[in-house]
Design a protein around this nucleic acid. Structure first.
Lengths: 154, 154
DNA sequence: ATATGTGCAAATGCTTTGCAACGCC
DNA sequence: GGCGTTGCAAAGCATTTGCACATAT
């Protein structure tokens, strides 16, 4: 009962070529630019459906915008996002997970789930006089996403 | 150049009595309920100004809504938020901070900042049949301000 | 066939802003 | 008295939804 429409396929296809997180609108624009004819609402509906189905990774930016990205790694992981260019690095931090869970339990909490996003300036933007603590808005879409892809380990 | 108006004072005063995070709208409602006459825009403007000035703690909910709370502890800390009742517990986790920073540095990131929020079910709501992994919207602390007076705290 | 998916436009919900009136300092 | 502040309403956004039409299966 999950049909395979041209639009849905196109969305997945587009996502499969994006290394970093993109907003629904950016994805939509991208598709139009690539010659696809898709409605924005459809993009939203599909991104939502796909993420619900666990096929996409969703990251809520500091300003509340939802960013999507193809989910290669089903496992639990977090992101290191550059405030300047939006490039991301995934990382696992089992130790953090453990401590967090422990702390939560200590306070009587159960069924815990957490959100951990780290924002900073990636290597190539370190020097830039960026003083903003919660921006990362403008950047994204453009050219130079450094596309860091590997994985860390705590 | 930060004047001391009735509204601004009232906002701070109201916040000083709230243990948990509240949305701008909830704060506004609360104030009206308390007999204060304040415009919603003013509440937004002040919450923004105050948080920019470091006097308020801001937490962005999973759906993008901004929640504010008086900042008693200037130090860096995180929150444990109950999905059911919205009660919060603050916690410090120096070890996590350290690891996070280390990981970021390993990837060449500088000027890092992070967001870590833990959602779960507090002690008194543990049994509740809450299966939703990222809802917390419909439940507790939302709309009906009339009865939202008493608050939990783990 | 028919339940799903799609497109468009209108509707939401949170937040911001323009602008004239207002009130601290 | 001047400049930050306030209020209201209108504007902005990202996202959602109603509905008629199109289409995978």
């Amino acid at each position: 009962m999950q049909r395979n429409t041209r639009q849905r396929t196109a969305i997945l296809e587009t996502l499969s070529r994006q290394a970093d997180f993109r907003s629904a609108q950016q994805i939509h624009e991208q598709m139009r630019a690539d010659g696809e004819t898709v409605g924005l609402a459809t993009v939203y509906r599909n991104l939502q459906a796909l993420s619900r189905a666990g096929r996409l990774d969703v990251l809520v930016a500091a300003d509340g915008e939802s960013l999507y990205r193809q989910c290669e790694d089903t496992g639990h992981h977090h992101h290191l996002v550059c405030r300047e260019c939006g490039s991301t690095v995934e990382f696992l931090a089992p130790r953090l997970e453990a401590s967090m869970t422990a702390i939560a339990r200590e306070h009587g909490f159960t069924d815990v789930d957490h959100t951990l996003e780290v924002f900073g300036l990636c290597a190539k933007h370190s020097g830039s006089g960026a003083k903003k603590t919660r921006a990362a808005k403008d950047s994204g879409a453009a050219e130079d996403s450094s596309t860091a892809e590997e994985d860390a380990r705590a």
